[in-house]
Design a protein around this nucleic acid. Sequence first.
DNA 1: TATTGTTATACTCTATAACTATA
DNA 2: TATAGTTATAGAGTATAACAATA
Lengths: 151, 151
Amino acid sequence: MCTCLSSVQAGILNAVTSSRPDLAAMIGPLGRTLFALEAPILDAHGLAMWAYAVLLNLDDEPVRTQTALAEAIGADKTRIIKILDDLTARGLIERRPDPTDRRARLLSLTAEGRRLRDATQAAIQAAEEELLSRLTPAERETFLQALQKLL
Amino acid sequence: MCTCLSSVQAGILNAVTSSRPDLAAMIGPLGRTLFALEAPILDAHGLAMWAYAVLLNLDDEPVRTQTALAEAIGADKTRIIKILDDLTARGLIERRPDPTDRRARLLSLTAEGRRLRDATQAAIQAAEEELLSRLTPAERETFLQALQKLL
DNA sequence: TATTGTTATACTCTATAACTATA
DNA sequence: TATAGTTATAGAGTATAACAATA
């Protein structure tokens, strides 16, 4: 799976020195933990991480340009092309030229793509729930809210 | 700075489908945000990310083997060697053979290394505080507690 | 034989630049 | 001229394997 998110930002760990550890020193390792958690699930569903990211960001909106999609998932536009090729070949997404601007490609999920995405996400979130079960319901809610605020 | 952590695990973003986004879809981008936040600070202090991670994990314990240190920061043992070489050459850490096992190297911070580490960490945490200011004090406390629980 | 540190090699990931086709 | 998509190339980052020294 993604060895990167990880890899790069992941290396910063606890400081024993200060009153609190660096935020990045906690987010990084947590990201790696999640990555390790999801890797086998994605693998079982036949999806690489970036492919899953693509499926996640494709929803009912039939529109969008590849560059915008790449930017949305934090990737380079050149990086997702082979991923899109593969997803298209597998019938999970559809890529057709925009009638109003034939340079652009309109991206959309196929029914099968949606099915695979939802099944994969259900499995991933189930695994995440196991981790989140360490928190009390109140903590859990505040934690998730805070995360969204920080984005 | 680290383009990797980020890079790899970072790509998963919001799902519009489910009741909550994937945890990884929030942790990843947050990690990238933090990475972008810290990169200029680390650069200004003359530290690469892994070098900073090394300094953070070296404290008063004068002991430890390189392999253990590498594992602690989530790196490969072969990956930190050049980093340790550089830190040693700059007088920020000390690396001396363990008298009881001459295969191993005892790693420790120098006074200057500690000074640089603390100054860098202060700057980084100050930047992080700015981000955390989006949270209420209660949210902030719960969020940080929850993070530590999840590690 | 196993382990620490090291080096060298190969592999993956990522970004850069250059090309095409449209506009 | 500028933009969307694509391709090819080069670079950075990472892991694998092999080596020397010590246990």
